[in-house]
């Protein structure tokens, strides 16, 4: 059973062992509107927690994506290239990158599901 954490910039990280799937939250997906493009890093890129790893575009907005954890990008979700709307349909399934974490202790600094729900409530 994987556990999920969030950043204030609305990325989630789903963790299974030392493997993390990073995507954007349901709240972020609904705010962004129909996603038209996702800019992703290359497999093998090394990320530090907080690094910008890509960007997500809708017709009239674009947001940078930040990595919640440090580690190596071991896979990018190729399906998003042809069908970026998967992110609108099921954001928690439509992960963007898969990271092999180098420091799982970083997760302690992130919001868990209930803390994030509270956080979203405060965003008007």
């Amino acid at each position: 059973m994987s556990k999920i954490y969030y950043l204030p910039s609305h990325e989630y990280v789903k963790v299974d062992g030392d493997i993390a799937l990073v995507g954007i939250s349901e709240y972020a997906a609904s705010q962004l509107g129909a996603v038209t493009y996702v800019d992703v890093p290359e497999e093998g890129d090394e990320l530090a927690a907080g690094d910008e790893f890509g960007a997500i575009e809708s017709r009239k907005a674009a947001s940078d994506l930040f990595s919640p954890v440090s580690g190596e990008v071991i896979e990018v979700n190729e399906e998003l290239a042809d069908n970026p709307r998967l992110i609108n349909n099921a954001p928690l399934d439509a992960w963007i990158i898969k990271v092999k974490m180098s420091d799982p202790a970083e997760l302690d600094g992130l919001m868990d599901e209930s803390a994030y729900a509270e956080f979203c409530k405060k965003q008007h």
């Binding site: 493009y37 017709r59 674009a62």
Partner: peptide, 14 residues
């Protein structure tokens, strides 16, 4: 006009 998310009026310094 399309692909406007790349442009300065939306992405500013990015």
């Amino acid at each position: 006009l399309t692909l406007q998310a790349r442009e300065q009026h939306i992405r500013r310094q990015k």
